[in-house]
């Protein structure tokens, strides 16, 4: 039992870390453009299928495939921005609907190409199991995935905090007019935010597919909704809050599976969301009057 719990804990941490990357992706776009990009999940899916596409084309190199998957996600994200976001001129409600349309398009397009069944996923390297203490075992793939996700998060935070483009994103998120006054190219920064968000989506999609050993065209719906839950529970615009909430939710979900079975997994997430909205309408780490627009 103990090693089972430990295993569930690790699974919780690694899914939580992936959720966090998804939520940060939403945050980036929400921050710089003040819109909710509901195609985020579909872009993750595209990233995960990009890897498979390269294998299908006969190039048998995992890392090259990963780079290709991320690039494909990035291009897809930028296309969505051009087609379903920019022409709508900031009308958040319409953008929500249009990006959802884009997601539906992508999901059905990929289903059409692949006939919709879950596809087995390659692994970065052969799993080796290490025994920690007694019966506790952990595989190098698991550790690698957790390290990747957490590393990505930390890198993202450092980027936003310390680099000039990162600062530009934060400035635009806090006040786009003022950003122009201090010399930030707002349009370019918005595209940068969108691009980063899409690349992160690609990473999340691939990490998730490697974790579960498979991917399917509608995987983004499940992941995208979870990211959204975390975004709201943490409070829009809070990167650190996202990380904390995501990890807690991942572990909580894992343990709810232990306690009651897999059908309780989502119930936990959505109940947490409803509860948060009732008790703290602006999220656990959010503040009143700070509705988005800030990273």
């Amino acid at each position: 039992m103990a090693e089972y719990l430990f295993e569930q804990f690790l699974i919780g941490i690694s899914t939580g870390a992936i959720y966090a990357i998804v939520a940060i992706g939403y945050n980036l776009v929400f921050g710089v453009m003040n819109v909710l990009n509901l195609s985020h999940g579909a872009v993750m899916m595209v990233g995960s299928f990009g890897v498979l596409l390269l294998f299908y084309l006969g190039i048998d190199n995992f890392w090259l495939a990963v780079a290709f998957g991320i690039a494909l996600a990035l291009v897809t994200g930028l296309l969505v921005e051009r087609i379903a976001v920019r022409p709508l001129k900031g009308n958040w409600w319409n953008i929500k609907v249009a990006t959802l349309g884009a997601a539906m398009f992508l999901e059905n397009f990929v289903t059409r190409l692949t006939d919709g069944r879950p596809m087995p996923y390659p692994r970065p390297f052969k799993p080796v199991y290490y025994t920690i203490v007694g019966d506790f075992e952990v595989s190098n793939v698991q550790l690698f995935l957790i390290a990747c996700s957490l590393g990505l998060m930390v890198a993202m935070m450092l980027f936003l905090r310390h680099t000039t483009p990162g600062k530009a994103i934060r400035v635009v998120a806090q006040n786009p007019d003022l950003a122009q006054c201090v010399g930030v190219n707002v349009q370019q920064t918005m595209v940068l935010g969108f691009a980063l968000s899409a690349a992160l989506a690609g990473c999340a999609g691939i990490l998730n597919a490697v974790t579960f050993g498979s991917t399917y065209p509608f995987v983004g719906q499940f992941l995208g909704l979870k990211g959204l839950v975390i975004l709201i529970v943490a409070g829009i615009g809070n990167v650190r809050g996202c990380l904390i909430v995501a990890l807690v939710l991942g572990v909580l979900e894992s343990f709810s599976v232990v306690a009651g079975g897999s059908q309780y997994r989502d119930l936990v997430a959505y109940s947490a969301l409803v509860l948060t909205l009732l008790v703290r309408p602006h999220g656990l780490f959010g503040e009143e009057g700070r509705t988005g627009r800030e990273i």
């Binding site: 806090q174 006054c181 707002v186 349009q187």
Partner: peptide, 24 residues
């Protein structure tokens, strides 16, 4: 011309409202 280009030319605008970046 967009505002950031003008800022680079040396025009500094201090608006009336929302004049600081609150989270910095």
């Amino acid at each position: 011309k967009p505002g950031h280009v003008l800022a680079k030319l040396g025009i500094a605008h201090v608006p009336a409202q929302n004049i600081v970046l609150p989270r910095m």
